[in-house]
């Protein structure tokens, strides 16, 4: 298609539009790279988000999530690679993109000295709409804020602030919603509520790209991308992700976790062993029977160690994949 455009520039825009309508992805990212000086924040990242999809970007702080958000919201320019948001080119059509996306930055970025109502009506006005016009979209969220509508935004609790920010990002009925770590610093109850709101928004046909450092939120997305050090480790559905873990995984528990960790690291079958809460998650080479592990542990004097097979969590998968990528890069 790109080739065709360059040959026939006159007809290109109409063709692009009709083509986009057929196979339009909400977000299309092709080999985007970005570096700040010597530090490369994104290394040839590619993925697609379908229309009406809730897509999660999961990775620790400094993985490059915010940089990617800023590139997709046209706030930063990529060093190389291309991208489209709702069929609009990131560079050429940046004005169009700014009209049709909703963006909630990682840091609370509303006017702290304006009230809830003033903030919302300001953002409605600059997008050329009114609160009343799109009230239906934000109603579920806004009813919770309504009792505090005269309160200054700076005096709201963390959860309330995020709800207000979401309302402000939604007030112009965006086609694509970018939420950069919306649940960071928010209590567990509010986090749960927040994800329920996202589900409802998805049902209204809005594509959502959401980032989070919390691995447990992965299962709430349609698809997730695990990202670390500017590289996407894998893209899959939450269920599909579980099958990517093809090695036996055990939870091992003992009174002295530290000694147990040291002991297990030396075990010949061990692929990796990592502390999780009060137990250790042990990955061993394929087809290693449990009896061998028990035997090894008894020899070392960990008689009462409790071993049980478990299914992997997103965190296990994340750590395993990042371990593999690192050893590959070395």
């Amino acid at each position: 298609m790109v080739h065709f455009e360059s040959v026939c520039p006159l007809r290109s825009s109409s063709i692009r539009t009709s083509w986009n309508r057929l196979v339009m992805q909400a977000i299309q990212v092709d080999n985007i790279s970005k570096s700040y000086g010597k530090i490369s924040a994104l290394k040839s990242v590619s993925f697609q988000v379908e229309e009406g999809e809730l897509f999660g970007l999961i990775g620790p702080d400094g993985a490059g999530k915010s940089t990617l958000f800023r590139i997709l919201t046209t706030l930063l320019l990529a060093d190389s690679g291309e991208g489209h948001v709702a069929g609009n080119h990131l560079l050429r059509d940046y004005r169009k993109i700014r009209r049709i996306v909703g963006y909630m930055p990682g840091r609370f970025s509303l006017y702290q000295d304006l009230s809830v109502e003033e903030n919302l009506s300001f953002f409605a006005t600059i997008f050329g709409t009114t609160i009343e016009e799109n009230y239906g979209l934000i109603k579920d969220i806004y009813v919770q804020l309504e009792p505090f509508k005269k309160r200054l935004a700076g005096q709201l609790s963390g959860g309330m602030k995020q709800k207000l920010a979401l309302c402000c990002a939604l007030i112009h009925r965006p086609e694509v919603l970018f939420l950069d770590e919306p649940t960071t610093g928010v209590d567990a109850v509010s986090r749960k509520e927040f994800w329920e709101m996202l589900k409802k928004l998805k049902q209204k046909g809005i594509a959502i790209l959401v980032s989070t450092p919390y691995m447990d939120e992965a299962s709430l997305c349609d698809r997730i991308a695990l990202i670390q050090n500017g590289e996407i480790l894998t893209i899959n559905t939450p269920e599909g992700l579980m099958t990517e873990y093809d090695l036996p995984l055990y939870a091992v528990k003992y009174d002295d976790t530290y000694q147990l960790l040291k002991g297990l690291r030396k075990m010949p079958y061990t692929k990796s062993v990592l502390p999780f809460g009060d137990s250790l998650h042990l990955t061993v080479e394929a087809e290693t029977p449990v009896s061998k592990i028990t035997e090894y542990l008894t020899d070392l004097g960990f008689e009462n160690a409790e071993i049980r097979p478990i299914s992997p969590t997103v965190e296990d998968i994340f750590l395993e994949l990042s371990r593999r990528t690192e050893s590959k890069n070395d």
């Binding site: 004005r95 963006y103 050329g128």
Partner: peptide
């Protein structure tokens, strides 16, 4: 400084 410029830029203004 407060990050509101980010939101203002990602708008039709």
């Amino acid at each position: 400084e407060q990050g509101t410029m980010e939101i203002l830029l990602v708008s039709p203004l």
